[in-house]
């Protein structure tokens, strides 16, 4: 193969990879603006989540078949994952979440924090990252578990209050 042809082949391959890895995601961000989902209800297995006002979401970030949903609250991202059945309690679940968090590059766990979802008490941990801060809450109710992970560049008091309101909108079945 001539040098010119091999250069052309390499350029085409590079273009294909970059298109799929960069261009398509950028296109997705460009054509999929966030939508206000305030007041809407999302169902993940046995759990319903009612989003408070001024909560946004990108299309594709509600995946009921996977038990996942991700919201945008101000500049913060809030991921909620639900699964069942779960045999352990909220403290164990929080420890499992912390196990993963503490091995992330640049993540440092800090103090515990209270978490409540529609009257169900959870177990929470705060953490800081290289670029911001966050916290994780774990809930277990009737063998259904819900994990909430919130992260943002700067979680100011107002944003945290709105995230707590979102968490409080999580309802476990008849809880």
């Amino acid at each position: 193969m001539s040098r010119k042809k091999s250069l052309a082949v390499s350029a085409v391959v590079a273009a294909v990879v970059l298109a799929l890895a960069l261009a398509v995601p950028l296109l997705n961000k460009a054509v999929a603006p966030t939508v206000d989902v305030g007041g809407e209800t999302f169902t993940l297995f046995e759990v319903t989540i009612t989003a408070p006002a001024e909560v946004h979401m990108r299309p594709g970030y509600y995946q009921p078949e996977s038990g996942r949903v991700e919201f945008l609250v101000g500049d913060a991202e809030v991921a909620i994952a639900v699964a069942e059945p779960y045999e352990f309690d909220a403290d164990y679940l929080a420890a499992e979440m912390a196990r993963l968090l503490e091995v992330q590059p640049g993540v440092q766990l800090t103090d515990s924090r209270p978490c409540t979802a529609s009257g169900v008490a959870g177990s929470g941990r705060s953490f800081v990252t290289e670029t911001g801060a966050g916290f994780a809450c774990a809930f277990v109710h009737d063998q259904v578990r819900a994990e909430v992970t919130a992260t943002g560049a700067a979680l100011d008091e107002s944003t945290v209050d709105r995230i707590d309101a979102l968490i409080d909108g999580i309802a476990f079945g008849e809880a």
């Binding site: 990879v17 799929l20 890895a21 960069l22 398509v24 995601p25 296109l27 997705n28 054509v31 999929a32 990108r58 299309p59 594709g60 970030y61 509600y62 995946q63 009921p64 078949e65 996977s66």
Partner: peptide, 28 residues
């Protein structure tokens, strides 16, 4: 390369499909 490109590309395509047809349709 294939794994990481698929990771980003497939998620983006899913987002595009969700924009076009809704999250449930995209999920399926």
């Amino acid at each position: 390369v294939a794994v990481m490109t698929s990771l980003y590309g497939s998620n983006a395509v899913r987002g595009l499909l969700a924009t076009a047809g809704g999250p449930a349709w995209a999920g399926q």
